[in-house]
Amino acid sequence: MSAEFLVFLVVALISVASALGLLLSKNAIYAAMFLILNMVSLAVIYLLLNAPFIAAVQVAVYAGAIMVLFVFVIMLLGAEKLNAPETRPGLKWQQPLALALGVALAFQALYVVFARGITAPANVIEAGPLAIGRLLFTTYLFPFEVASILLLAAMVGAVVLTKKDN
């Protein structure tokens, strides 16, 4: 058993446990902290796959920036306690739909594992910042620009929605 496998085992257990913790915790701050733990453990898995850039960006963007905003909003609204009524009338269809989609996703994952078998990770490519920057600005230029326009539209939308009329 190599050291790499040992690290993977520990990190995989942490990521699954933190995902469960996120779902099961009654307190939104605890759920947010579990989500951060989950994101950091995924970053370690990216590191094991020889992708230091993706790992660092995963922590910087998700765990560092987006989740700080989540925690900020939860604290600001004092919304950490989950005391909603059983199911709100408008959302009756939500639980069966979520169940069906979850079962479909689980089957998909199981199908991939059993039909294709677990193989070694794809060939190690050089995934440093330089290689990824090159790819983003040559091969994947169009999707990259589309994604940035989407983000800009979301930002403008947020500004318009929160603007007070005066």
Binding site: P52, F53, A56, A60, G128, P129, L130
Partner: peptide, 10 residues
């Protein structure tokens, strides 16, 4: 490490 600056940011 090639991503030192990003590590600092994160």
């Amino acid at each position: 490490v090639p991503v030192g600056v990003l590590l600092v940011a994160s």
